[in-house]
Design a protein around this nucleic acid. Structure first.
Lengths: 111, 111
DNA sequence: TCATTATATCATGAAATTATGATATGTTAT
DNA sequence: ATAACATATCATAATTTCATGATATAATGA
């Protein structure tokens, strides 16, 4: 047991799972959604989402690490944007699948 | 505050976040990956993944609720499969994005 | 320089997710 | 009918994620 191949698969799947974890939080999902409309500063996101500044900053850091967003600084403002077109493709596919399964998803109390 | 529009956005994003939560666990991700190769019984997944039977069954229930997989029963066996082509498209896009960001993702200790 | 504003970081408690072990359900074969 | 096997369900404990509040860093303007 514990063959090298299996170990590799475990590590790989942890990587991908972590990637999807980026969109598995409502606030982070909403941030990505807003950024698809164009870059926004941290403050703008805080205002729009009505969440605390530290919360937004933390989530942005997470999204940046996962490769969903990038950022640029302009004076004391930091603007976040989505540069990878594949991110919006993933979101759109999810939208379609969810549309066909909305009724089920909300009832998932298992985990 | 608490305008109807914002409430709707919150509910929507919770739905989508829950959907992505399906792939945000290494075991569930691995299950989907294996099923992309063709349908498998619960027992086969248990053997291949080396996880407990209850764990696999629970994860499968979760994936089913999210619309990632469907199942058919044949005698005492239950076979799970991926019917929605968009699931594999999402996986492939993720694979590409992760490939460009692998170094960063693993260092995401924030959350 | 000092005050103000914008953003980032971090410790901690609260809440949610997950694995485990036990048990239940259902099917097949004897 | 009952034993054996496959799968599902569920309570609970362990782990992880998350929000909060406090503090730090950094840029701008007075």
């Amino acid at each position: 047991m514990d063959e090298p191949l299996k170990v590799m698969h475990v590590i790989q799947s942890e990587l991908y799972a972590k990637f999807f974890q980026g969109l598995s939080n409502p606030v982070r999902y909403r941030i990505v959604e807003l950024l698809l409309d164009g870059e926004k500063s941290v403050g703008e996101l805080v205002n729009t989402l009505g969440a605390s500044q530290s919360q937004i900053s933390n989530h942005l850091a997470c999204l940046k690490w996962c490769g969903y967003v990038s950022s640029r600084q302009d004076g004391k403002y930091v603007y976040y944007q989505i540069t990878d077109k594949r991110v919006s493709q993933i979101m759109e596919l999810a939208r379609q699948v969810v549309a066909d399964n909305a009724a089920h998803i909300n009832s998932c109390t298992r985990m």
